[in-house]
Design a protein around this nucleic acid. Structure first.
Lengths: 228, 228
DNA sequence: TGTACATCAGTGAACGCGCGTTCACTGATGTAC
DNA sequence: TGTACATCAGTGAACGCGCGTTCACTGATGTAC
């Protein structure tokens, strides 16, 4: 809950700041808020510093006091997106290791702001490579999921993929989980994203069924719930 | 195998064309090939008619003899992507109703050209709405999958989602399949895309495990194969 | 086979536009004594 | 409390650039008689 500013855009930090620092943080947050808005209404390619400045009633070059370049702004938006999901997961996991709760937290997070979801899980930009701290946050998200998945009813059967995982334990930073749990967490993750990415990309529109029920059916099957 | 030109870019159609028509088709295909290349190396936002023309040794306005606008070019690329997947599915299904074969065909199609995959299943462009014929092709793809999924071992248990599907049978164009088969096809589809979208977006890099084995494990579980 | 005409691919100049980014500068805010 | 100085937010002009798209035109290809 503490730390650097989240994606809500209004938090101003710990409070032990000078007025100038506080003002800086506010304007930075406002710029990011406008950037997110522009992202949602016209796509990532249309994100323009000048357009943001115009909407804020400032001149274009003024933004360079707050972000060194357009790329830095985008990277910051991606970082915020990862952080907000990580925060959501940590907050959800605080109530106990419940994969189902994490699943619905993920869905809530994704639907709350679809373009933010795509910033993390959407089409990758060919040139772009995320800085190290972002991959660190991503590892934290997976670790939280993995922690919850070891609480699922165990299925210790040995499959080719689990044998393969046995030899590649580096995954999730030497997390103390057996291959079966690793596999379960991976399947959990990929099945949730399967539903979400298809739904958010609009591939269920026109079908008439409710994606929320489909998602719930997947979660039920994953957690072994028959009648929920 | 007949019909309008595919995404390979060299096919020139039925042969009953005038030399001029043949030439037109060739240049159109060449433009699309360069567009795909540009798409792969710099992302969808960087697709520029002028840049394509320059690479082809032509002047920019020349391309307007072949495409009415940049948007029409992009739509054509998306259409080609859908068509190539539909063709792949139809060709695969010709050997019999085998969901597993379709799964690996999908994966092969996706890996063959990841940016083409994202053209269909990636981050949607906020303003863009696909023309009707494209949604028609998409329905055909789902119909092929559904046909194959009715051949899977049946699991007629009733869940909330299947009851819901019962009331929303419009899906896949009044396809004569029971809700259990519909659910199976949906799960099949979304689980495959879960693995593929995460893999192609690079979310498995650095983990050390082989996504192909993970994908195979998902297919095995979906088709009820224990030791494959 | 030769001539007159129509079709159409491609060019070059030009349009207005918005972009990211730099630079020298103004003016307000904060700090030190 | 008042003055001198440093910090820093924001401006306006300017840079070069590439974009999509239009237009009038040239020249080659194909067609009709």
């Amino acid at each position: 809950m503490t730390g650097t500013d989240t994606s809500t855009g209004t938090g101003t930090g710990t409070g032990s700041e000078t007025p100038r620092e506080r003002y800086r943080a506010q304007v930075r947050a406002e710029i990011k808020a406008h950037a997110r808005e522009q992202l949602a209404s016209a796509g990532a390619s249309a994100l323009s510093l000048n357009a943001i400045a115009k909407r804020m009633g400032m001149s274009g070059p003024a933004l360079y006091r707050y972000f060194a370049s357009r790329d830095e702004l985008i990277t910051e938006l991606i970082r915020d997106a990862y952080r907000s999901l990580a925060d959501t997961f940590v907050a959800t996991a605080a109530a106990g290791p419940d994969p189902s709760a994490l699943a619905y937290a993920l869905r809530g997070w994704a639907l709350e702001d679809p373009h933010r979801y795509f910033l993390v899980y959407g089409t990758p930009v060919p040139g772009y490579h995320a800085p190290d701290d972002i991959t660190g946050i991503a590892r934290g998200i997976m670790a939280t999921l993995l922690d919850a998945c070891v609480a699922l009813p165990p299925d210790p059967s040995v499959t080719p993929f689990r044998s393969h995982l046995e030899e590649h334990r580096r995954w999730a930073g030497d997390h103390p989980a057996d291959p079966a749990a690793l596999h379960r967490a991976l399947t959990f993750w990929s099945r949730l994203h399967g539903v979400l990415s298809l739904e958010l990309a609009g591939h269920f529109t026109g079908t008439g069924f409710d994606p929320a029920l489909f998602f719930a059916a997947e979660v039920d099957e994953l957690t072994g719930a028959s009648a929920h």
